[in-house]
């Protein structure tokens, strides 16, 4: 395959034809943040955090889904890019529950990590909050209050688990991850593979705490 020459952050480099800007950046040791991208999944372009500046383009360009073209001049961390990424995170935080202190994902949360990187403090924007009751079932505990709609779980369920029980429903701000046609998780459809849980960037999907089920054997303290 032909090599495509591009300039990235001032340095000349080249990549195979068909490689995305993000992949090329990674090969060159440049870290572009992502929220909805995962190597194993098809790109969707939903979160827009991975945007970069490409000379001659009217808008910023999603690097996770845009292939490199000959002569492309790319800036991955220009002031314009950073300012835009910051506002996107501020927006995501505006509707996010904000209970990071109580969240079991707190220190491994991708959203929080990005917020720290981009110096995001209290969000200046006021939107509705997404408050949904926590959905509990034996397989996946779903707390949509923490969902940032990256759709990794939806794609993982379809593309890796080849099951497709997770989907997207409703529009605009009310968009949410649903099971089947927005029904409670039916026991016979979920294969309990946990793949969706493993790809969730926030605390939205987690393993249910089976508090009593695991109590077997002798009690620890014997009076």
């Amino acid at each position: 395959m032909a090599e495509v020459k591009v300039t990235i952050n001032g340095a000349q480099t080249s990549g195979r034809e068909g490689v995305t800007i993000l992949e090329l950046a990674q090969e060159n040791g440049i870290k572009i943040p992502t929220l909805c991208y995962l190597t194993e999944l098809s790109p969707t372009g939903a979160c827009r955090i991975c945007i970069v500046e490409v000379e001659g383009s009217r808008t910023l360009v999603g690097s996770c889904h845009t292939p490199i073209t000959p002569g492309m001049i790319i800036q991955t961390h220009s002031p314009k890019v950073l300012a835009t990424r910051k506002v996107i995170i501020e927006l995501l935080f505006a509707s996010h529950c904000g209970f990071c202190m109580l969240c079991n994902k707190a220190n491994v949360c991708n959203l929080r990590e990005l917020a720290a990187d981009l110096d995001v403090g209290l969000s200046p924007f006021q939107t509705r909050k997404r408050f949904y009751p926590i959905e509990d079932n034996p397989y996946i505990q779903i707390d949509r209050t923490q969902c940032i709609l990256c759709r990794k779980c939806v794609r993982a369920c379809r593309e890796i688990a080849e099951n497709g029980i997770l989907g997207i429903a409703y529009r605009s701000f009310d968009t949410k991850i649903v099971i089947d046609n927005d029904q409670p998780l039916a026991q016979d459809t979920c294969r309990d593979c946990d793949i969706c849980i493993s790809v969730c960037p926030t605390g939205c999907l987690s393993k249910p705490k089976k508090l009593s089920a695991a109590k077997t054997g002798k009690p620890l303290i014997i009076c």
Binding site: I88, L91, F125, S172
Partner: peptide, 22 residues
């Protein structure tokens, strides 16, 4: 526009919402 945003990308979904509020 907020109502008609499809809900896929975050700048539009959350941005139109924040604009309405302001």
């Amino acid at each position: 526009l907020n109502k008609e945003s499809c809900g896929k990308c975050s700048p539009c979904r959350e941005g139109t919402e924040a604009m309405v509020k302001i």
